[in-house]
Nucleic acid binder design. Structure first.
Lengths: 159, 159
DNA sequence: TGTTTTCCCATGTTATCCCATAAATGCCCG
DNA sequence: CGGGCATTTATGGGATAACATGGGAAAACA
């Protein structure tokens, strides 16, 4: 259950996107027919994805970290309290795959990614995956390559 | 069974509102024909919604976790005692969907939300959903986005 | 007997299913 | 170690079903 690799996919005339078999195979049994897309909390124009189970698990971890185990009742009843898990739910959309493993990318995500022309980069990130605008991913990738080298250089002495 | 996404819906001339399929699909089997709306306890002009089962489950948790067996028994028998679950029940309205998946928003909620002109934002919050006045949701959303960023910033070093 | 509510039908749009083709992949057996 | 050969995958497109939305007519209500 680990999303890997980097694949550029395009939208066809109907707005459909092929979800590569390599990604589909990482969805848990019984949940191969769909997944969840949600927009990034911090990076504009970036869309994240995960299996339903993976997304729910993430929310559970978030809820435990943000509120502590006892406060979940308060989060449901007190609408004034900040509820990060609820926030992410509102930004998430359930995506269903057709029998051929394709899905239609919702309009809002097409706009965020400016995906109509160049398509999107599907990026495996281990426990989740991401949808990037190809050009923006290129920029980010170069930045991350430098950050990675710096990170590794700092590994020895530190600990 | 988790409400997701954010959808703006409008009232037609008859005051009907389309309940999107994405939300209807989250209602439990046998309860697809309606749901419960109830006003927020803490935020003025906000209306919450849930399936009948979800709403009942919430009240059960409220009685069990917040009050305990003795206090909830007292709440049933002693009319002078404060009964939060009973309070919420009295605020709640049962909503029925027509065969096309639409419902009429009761007058009191239209007023609270000032929904006649701009419609309402349907907001999936995971275990429940919310009805917001579009402009007010915009304000809240920006505040929550900032709170989310602050929360994420505090995640790394802290523990 | 007016008013409100509910049901039913019509329509344009979108999404879903199904079939077809072609490329890519894996596999068996010579 | 390669040919075939079957299977899976990617991609296009037509047919069908589902959805959102408007409006009329019947039913319920007062």
């Amino acid at each position: 259950m680990a999303f890997r690799s980097e694949i550029l996919v395009k939208l066809d005339k109907k707005g459909r996107v092929a979800f590569p078999a390599a990604f589909r195979d990482e969805l848990p049994d019984g949940q191969r027919d769909g997944f969840v897309l949600y927009r990034s909390n911090t990076v504009a124009g970036l869309v994240n994805g995960n299996s339903r189970a993976g997304f729910d698990g993430m929310l559970a971890r978030l809820r435990a970290e943000a509120l502590g185990p006892k406060a979940s009742l308060k989060a449901v009843l007190d609408d004034e309290a900040f509820d990060p898990a609820g926030m992410m739910s509102s930004q998430a959309r359930e995506i269903r795959l057709d029998p051929d493993g394709r899905f239609v990318l919702p309009e809002e995500f097409i706009d965020m990614l400016d995906a109509r022309a160049e398509g999107v980069v599907l990026l495996g990130r281990g426990e989740k995956f991401q949808l990037w605008n190809p050009a923006r991913w290129q920029v980010r990738r170069e930045a991350d390559t430098a950050r990675m080298a710096a990170f590794l250089r700092g590994l020895d002495g530190a600990a």
